[in-house]
Amino acid sequence: MANLYGRIRSKEEIRRRVGDMSQIADMRLMSFEDGKARGMRSIECKNGSGLAFTILPDRGMDIAWASYQGHPFSYISKSEVCSPAYFTENKDKGFLDNFFAGVMTTSGLSNTGASNTDQGKEYGLHGVINNIPAHEVHISKEWVNDAYVMTASGKVRQSRFYGEDFTLIRTIKMELGDNKIVVHDVYQNTGFDAQPFMLLYHMNFGFPFLSEESRLVMNKSLVTPRTKEAEKGILEYEKLTEPVHGYQEQCFYHDFEPDERGEVCVGLQNPSLGQSGLEVYLKYRKEELPYFCQWKQLGEQEYVMGLIPSTGYAEGRSAARINHQLIELKPGEKKEVTLELGVKEL
């Protein structure tokens, strides 16, 4: 059953009304033909009841644009969506030069957070996984009982001579009429040596969901400022404003109390959107991603709220080693993560 255009309809009711399902819901492989994104693949997705988003297979199967019933909720930076051909890992510069942000940028897998030197090797800001093209990209669209299920999957391999060999298999699923995106990731150390492993999901939300009228929705948490700048705003970490000229980012670490299912749910509500307000939310298991950073950046053009779960604080590999947050994957070992990203009406 699917909730479409104000009515609950069955599979047969829907099939009788359309010649091809792409009329109302689809995942479609396409490519860019202009600018710095020229030649990149995209998967354009729509679910039939207002949710639409774009997957970028050539940027680690991450998600760029996302909207609900015409209301964008992703943030796209002035670095633009661009090809990984423009990327060179160069401390902070390499990542920031082509950080399009989008609603999901995956960071890792050998470093997350600040650029640093660990055991004599330099690591750039947030790693390289977001700039590796996927292969074996596949789209599936089929009826499963009474649900029309659409999935996009791809394999992303982060490997280098004399270095790590990680493989990510990502599956992104949505259903007809169900306003959520489910991302299921399986990371594996496919090499023969144990490897340090770091993972962070940079989830980025922008205007109009982010505005001076918006409010944060979070589980109960212990809040810690990341920097001296954040210390200035610790009593107002939930307060949102119009864009502020010269605003300096503030980041806050949250230690959440998960619910009875072991899940954490965070989101942004805007009461002025839709008929009675809209909320965009992120749900995940704390056991899989025990750390969380709120990135509050309310500057002009750089107007974005980051809700960022991870395997460790975003301080870089060297700090993670010192603070005993640097996990390790043994040869053949896997780590699975599931994220749910959705929109609901208030």
Rank of each mutant, 00 (worst) to 15 (best):
N3W: 15
R16T: 02
V18F: 15
A25K: 00
K36D: 13
R41S: 13
G48I: 02
L51D: 03
T54V: 14
I63R: 06
G70M: 06
I76K: 09
S77W: 03
K78H: 14
P84H: 12
N111T: 07
G113V: 05
S115L: 01
G120W: 08
G127D: 05
N131A: 02
V144A: 08
V149Q: 09
Q158M: 14
R160A: 11
R160Q: 12
D193V: 07
E213F: 11
R215W: 02
K220W: 02
L222Q: 06
I234H: 07
I234P: 00
L240V: 01
T241R: 03
P243W: 10
P243F: 04
E249R: 07
C251Q: 02
F252A: 09
F252Q: 04
G262Y: 10
E263Y: 08
G267Q: 06
G274L: 11
G277R: 11
V280S: 04
Y281E: 08
L282N: 06
K283I: 08
L289C: 08
K296G: 02
Q301T: 14
Y303W: 08
Y303N: 11
G306S: 06
I322C: 00
I322H: 10
I327N: 00
E340Y: 01
E340G: 01
G342E: 09
K344V: 03
E345H: 01
